[in-house]
Computed example of a mutant assay.
Amino acid sequence: MPSLVTSALPAGSLGAQAQPDLPVRPGLALRPWRVDDAPAVRAAFDCPRIQRWHVRRLDGEDEARAWTARWAQLWRDETSASWAVVDADDRPVGQVGLRGVLLEEASAQVSYWVVPAARGQGIAASALGALTRWSFTRAGLHRLALEHSTANVASCRVATRAGFPPEGLLRGSVRHTDGWHDMHLHARLRTDGPI
């Protein structure tokens, strides 16, 4: 059945170009994941807090390599994208990404995490801000949203600091290892102004 609304972004808007490196702030940048980042990813997913909120673990180097390698195809498919947040020595200290990209709606969900040693430095909010600016000014997206458990106070702070106001509560919408969680929904529109 044909749509009465044309797609907000044409196919190829992301996948036809190389995934860019993005500056964040001095000593911090975003770059596409590489297979040789697998040990850093494995170490990150050994963190109990990352496992708690992302409900995933990696059981070995092969899984970590597969995790890093899959992002290139997802970028080409224009369905998801992920960047390593790297320090001045090009070491991954976190992740920020787009999930559920919908070119038709020019929208996506965002995700982020930071390794324990790098927490408390504003890295997640800065990285999310850089990704948001690129998403709105270069990628042409209209809306970015994020959800986090109401129990994840740190994630709520990141969302707010990055300019994502709360939009509502999704009751019992995500199941974690300890049961169903209510989720806060935050979102930002391109028309909300500079970050």
Score class of each variant (00 low, 15 high):
residue 34 R to L: 01
residue 76 R to S: 06
residue 110 V to I: 15
residue 83 W to K: 05
residue 186 H to L: 15
residue 125 A to Y: 09
residue 59 D to S: 06
residue 149 S to A: 05
residue 181 H to Y: 15
residue 41 V to K: 08
residue 79 T to M: 02
residue 75 W to V: 00
residue 162 A to C: 15
residue 109 Q to A: 08
residue 122 G to W: 09
residue 64 A to R: 01
residue 115 V to R: 07
residue 90 D to L: 02
residue 89 D to L: 11
residue 134 W to A: 02
residue 146 L to A: 14
residue 48 P to L: 06
residue 54 H to C: 07
residue 124 A to Y: 10
residue 69 A to R: 03
residue 89 D to A: 09
residue 67 W to I: 00
residue 170 L to Q: 15
residue 6 T to D: 11
residue 174 V to W: 04
residue 45 F to Q: 03
residue 142 H to I: 00
residue 110 V to Q: 10
residue 137 T to C: 01
residue 91 R to S: 11
residue 33 W to K: 06
residue 20 P to N: 04
residue 52 R to G: 06
residue 189 L to D: 15
residue 95 Q to E: 04
residue 43 A to I: 02
residue 90 D to T: 14
residue 104 E to R: 06
residue 74 L to I: 06
residue 24 V to H: 05
residue 136 F to K: 00
residue 160 T to Y: 09
residue 104 E to W: 04
residue 63 E to W: 06
residue 188 R to F: 03
residue 36 D to Q: 11
residue 89 D to S: 11
residue 124 A to L: 05
residue 63 E to I: 05
residue 178 D to M: 12
residue 76 R to M: 02
residue 125 A to I: 09
residue 63 E to D: 11
residue 102 L to K: 10
residue 174 V to T: 12
residue 47 C to T: 08
residue 15 G to L: 01
residue 157 R to K: 13
residue 25 R to Y: 14
residue 71 W to F: 09
residue 31 R to F: 00
residue 16 A to V: 08
residue 5 V to N: 04
residue 171 R to P: 14
residue 6 T to P: 06
residue 134 W to N: 02
residue 52 R to D: 15
residue 109 Q to S: 12
residue 59 D to C: 15
residue 145 A to W: 03
residue 15 G to Y: 02
residue 140 G to R: 13
residue 47 C to M: 09
residue 195 I to N: 14
residue 74 L to Y: 10
residue 185 L to F: 15
residue 129 G to C: 01
residue 193 G to L: 00
residue 22 L to E: 13
residue 17 Q to D: 12
residue 153 V to D: 07
residue 135 S to I: 10
residue 98 L to H: 10
residue 123 I to S: 07
residue 178 D to A: 12
residue 36 D to G: 14
residue 174 V to M: 08
residue 13 S to N: 01
residue 86 V to A: 14
residue 93 V to L: 00
residue 186 H to E: 12
residue 94 G to M: 02
residue 57 R to S: 09
residue 191 T to Q: 14
residue 106 A to F: 05
residue 107 S to G: 11
residue 53 W to Q: 01
residue 158 V to I: 01
residue 176 H to P: 14
residue 29 A to I: 00
residue 79 T to P: 08
residue 146 L to S: 12
residue 62 D to H: 06
residue 185 L to Q: 11
residue 106 A to S: 07
residue 143 R to E: 10
residue 140 G to T: 07
residue 147 E to T: 09
residue 20 P to Y: 08
residue 95 Q to G: 09
residue 27 G to E: 02
residue 77 D to V: 01
residue 96 V to W: 03
residue 166 P to M: 10
residue 93 V to W: 00
